[in-house]
Nucleic acid binder design. Structure first.
Length: 818
RNA sequence: GCGGAUGUGGCGGAAUGGCAGACGCGCCAGACUUAGAAUCUGGUAUCCUUGAUGUGCUGGUUCAAGUCCAGUCAUCCGCACCA
């Protein structure tokens, strides 16, 4: 078969018939299959895309043949940093390079032969899409879910610009190697923390990989604890009446309060710069500056030596009433809790290390329930236990004490639930993104752009070479405008939205891409949502997948979406690595280009090999040794099908029950495997079926008896090799009819064909296999035991001894314990 | 560092706690062929080959462990401005 020719032929026919599109008039149940859309990068559609989209399409076609009205859209997530970096380097405008890449990639996408809905194509960087991204920003703002605050960004001191985390290498700029510092800027945030509890709670009901759910749980990081206030002692006076400053800390270990011997505030904490005494001011300021150069990951590392500086000031431990010193230390993060911690060196590893280094007191207040060990020298005892050195709380368990100690603090302590999840920063000081629809007016402040004025189009002529300002800020025609409220002179927000905002609602826009009046018609989206199967990389576990869930919940609360969760079921494909086992990258020179294989073998062979050669969720190093096996398999299928449908051999009658048994167990297994994306085992079952057909055929039996089997085989194979099967179907099996194979039902197994009269079971002696016996299938335990014990080999092995015990696993084994 | 995963023949990979290695690649043999290729059929974990050993390593639970538990080593992924 000329694969290339038939693939083109069927792709054109499917296009012309619109058979890939969702049928809005159908009353079949809907099924929404979604793959994470791709970024139109400068290189072509790569192996990773094929590995995601090929198998997902097999799944979508399988669902279609099962009788679902399948919605399977595709588009491009086309805003983002790479196009802008490419522009800075080459001068090619991001819009031009992006649109060019999209054209190339669209052609390549077509060559997969996937059944993408042609009506639902979208590109996030086109105004007809980002108009609605901006509209959504305004809706979140209206709902109180968007707000402005100061937040640190990476600032390259030489390029004079904001750079992404990705561009920071070992604390310096990847472009110019200069030092990168943190700089505070006013930015927009989405209040994802508003939904922290619900985002956590709803995970339980999702059909997602357990590891992904567990990563999101940890990312949200709920911890139940307490907020405790430490009063700062005024300088040179201990008179509590003069107390003006307070340090609030969050702790999950209020039971250790009597062991608090110092307090730490983060370098970014507002008090860090105001609190230090004159004598300490210089040292603290220097320390704060140093801290801004490190990443959170570096700072939190427990392997790294703890550092900090004394502020010269003290606060009062509300339990012991003792004066304790206040330190500034970078192991305390401003973004978590209150940006301040109470330190309990006896019962926390980091505090222990810090206290040992700075010779601070270590007071044991928790004892292990089963042993008396002195914690002050051996390291911190971090488990719960029994309280000691805690006055009236002595003898309580940690759990009891956490409640009672907080209660005793009255106004200075409250029980509190804290989340590690932070609000989502969406401002980017970049060009290639959706402009933030806000106008800044001196009189009226930040004013939302009226919805009728959307989209705020991204101007084409801008200077995006980095020089200290957002590219949009330098574009006068864009920046200068009038305030929608007061009509006075005003400026547009110079920032663009994080591209994750664009990808947080594309699953909704797909359903109604042509809508020019609204982002989507609620009636339509509620017909198709939620997504029934979402397929994409595990690297999105904590960000995209959480942001999209947040958007869905916010839109639900605004009355647009009915479902609580956007993605009912989720599957991650693995990563195909280079031959060397390393992640593919241009710099490593280990990139495998799928085009070469598609050119040589065609799309069906290539996507089948991707499904057969790897475990879908695992991926692994690329290796094309087995690709010829897939070619061979399809050729074997074609040969036998043609032979069976043009019988020339002499007809004999024969027992086809063995083939039937294999056929029906294959159907059963494939259906089960496809439901869980186990493509490699499903294809293995198809191999077995074809082997069984060949064995029957070569035994000289009647080929016409195999026609039904071959017909079923091609139906089973159709989602895996769609062009190939469509061609065989039309030209050999279903000749003279125009109905596509994908309009036929996927085979279902007949349970009556799966019963065999006898089964072979293993007979074990003390759990070791001794021999095998053949017994009737479904034989009850007593009879199975009797049969086994009557077997000559067993009698000989027993040699007159009576077994202590016999364990029977029906139809599998008999274990005789002697 | 924190969080998440992975570890099985020469190779890719299979195994609801129940006969480890399905299926395929590779390799070996046979058939067909003048010959080769292709095709078809069979074989293929290891070893001292009469039965013993085998799923990174050390223990544990169990009649029975790749699978469950504890620990350990190695590798990979994410960590909030890459998408």
């Amino acid at each position: 078969m000329d694969y290339k020719a038939i693939e083109k032929k069927w792709q054109d026919i499917w296009d012309a018939n619109g058979s890939n599109n969702f049928d809005w008039s159908s009353d079949k149940p809907k099924y929404y299959v979604l793959e994470m859309f791709s970024y139109p990068s400068a290189s072509n559609l790569h192996l990773g895309h094929w590995y995601n989209y090929g198998p997902s399409d097999t799944f979508a076609r399988y669902k279609k043949m099962q009788g679902y009205n399948v919605f399977h859209p595709m588009g491009f997530d086309s805003f983002g940093l790479p196009a802008e970096n490419f522009a800075i380097k080459t001068g090619v405008h991001p819009k031009d390079s992006t649109e060019k890449n999209i054209t190339t990639m669209l052609g390549q996408l077509k060559s997969i032969g996937a059944m993408y809905d042609a009506n639902s194509f979208l590109v996030t960087s086109r105004p007809e899409y980002y108009k609605w991204t901006q509209w959504l920003f305004l809706q979140l703002l209206k709902k109180g879910l968007a707000y402005q605050k100061n937040a640190p960004v990476n600032w390259c001191t030489s390029c004079n610009t904001v750079i992404a985390n990705e561009q920071v290498l070992d604390g310096s700029c990847e472009r110019c190697k200069s030092e990168v510092i943190k700089k505070e800027m006013t930015q927009w945030f989405f209040k994802i923390t508003h939904y922290a509890e619900e985002l956590l709670a709803c995970l339980d009901g999702l059909d997602w990989p357990e590891k992904t759910k567990s990563m999101q749980r940890n990312w949200i990081g709920k911890s139940i604890g307490a907020e405790i206030t430490f009063a700062v002692v005024p300088p040179r006076s201990a008179d509590p009446k003069d107390v003006k400053d307070y340090i609030k800390v969050f702790t999950t270990r209020a039971d250790t309060l009597f062991g608090v011997t110092y307090v730490v505030i983060a370098p970014e904490h507002p008090l860090a710069s105001t609190l230090p005494t004159a004598a300490k001011k210089k040292a603290v300021t220097k320390y704060i500056q140093e801290a801004t150069k490190q990443s959170d990951i570096e700072r939190l590392s427990t392997a790294k030596e703890k550092t900090g500086v004394f502020t010269g000031r003290y606060c009062i431990n509300p339990a012991t009433k003792k004066r304790i010193p206040i330190y500034v230390a970078d192991y305390c993060l401003a973004t978590y809790g209150t940006g301040a911690v109470m330190a309990v060196p006896a019962h926390d590893d980091r505090d222990f290390a810090f206290a040992t280094k700075y010779k601070l007191p270590i007071v044991t207040v928790i004892q292990s329930a089963d042993a008396n060990n002195d914690n002050t020298t051996s390291g911190a005892y971090t488990n719960d236990g029994i309280l000691t050195n805690s006055k009236k709380f002595d003898g309580l368990t940690s759990a009891e004490a956490r409640q009672k100690i907080v209660a005793s603090l009255k106004a200075h302590g409250t029980l509190k639930t804290n989340y590690r999840l932070r609000d989502w920063s969406v401002s980017r000081q970049r060009y290639w993104g959706a402009p933030i629809p806000i106008i800044h007016c001196q009189k009226c402040g930040a004013v939302p752009v009226p919805e009728k004025d959307l989209p705020i189009e991204l101007p084409y002529n801008v200077e995006f070479a980095p020089d200290g300002k957002s590219p949009l800020a330098k574009c006068a025609s864009f920046t200068h405008t009038t305030c929608p409220k007061c009509g006075g002179k005003a400026t547009r927000d110079p920032d663009t939205l994080d591209t994750f905002v664009c990808s947080s609602w594309y699953n909704l826009r797909y359903i109604d891409t042509k809508n020019t009046k609204e982002a989507f018609d609620p009636k339509l989206i509620n017909k198709l949502m939620p997504v029934d199967k979402y397929v994409g990389g595990a690297e999105h576990a904590c960000m995209h997948l959480l942001y999209a869930r947040f958007f869905n919940k916010a839109l639900r609360d605004m009355g647009y979406v009915n479902c609580d969760e956007p993605f009912k079921s989720l599957v991650h494909q693995g990563i195909i690595l280079g031959k060397d086992g390393q992640k593919m990258s241009k710099s490593k020179g280990n990139v495998v280009n799928p085009d070469i294989y598609v050119d040589e073998y065609g799309s069906d062979v290539f996507r089948m090999y991707l499904m057969f050669g790897f475990s879908f969720v695992e991926g692994g190093p690329w290796n094309d040794d087995g690709i010829k096996a897939t070619v061979r398999f399809l050729e074997r299928v074609e040969r036998i099908v043609r032979k069976v449908y043009e019988p020339t051999t002499i007809k004999q009658s024969g027992d086809i029950s063995e083939v039937e048994f294999v056929l029906h167990s294959t159907i059963k297994a494939i259906n089960e495997d496809l439901e869980v994306f186990s493509f490699n085992t499903a294809i293995a079952r198809l191999f077995e079926l074809v082997n069984a057909i060949y064995r029957y055929d070569t035994a000289g039996y009647d080929p016409t008896a195999l026609q039904d089997t071959c017909r079923t085989l091609i139906l089973l194979l159709a989602p895996f090799a769609p062009h190939f099967c469509e061609e065989l179907w039309a030209s050999v099996i279903n000749t003279g009819k125009t109905c596509s194979i994908f309009d036929h039902s996927y085979p279902k197994h007949d349970p009556s064909k799966l019963t065999k009269s006898t089964v072979e079971v293993a007979v074990q002696f003390n759990s070791r296999v001794k021999c095998k016996i053949t017994i009737p299938q479904g034989l009850d335990q007593a009879a199975a035991q009797k049969t086994a014990l009557a077997d000559p080999t067993v009698i000989a092995a027993l040699n007159g001894i009576t077994p202590k015990k016999v364990i029977i696993v029906p139809d599998r084994l008999v274990n005789i314990i002697v």
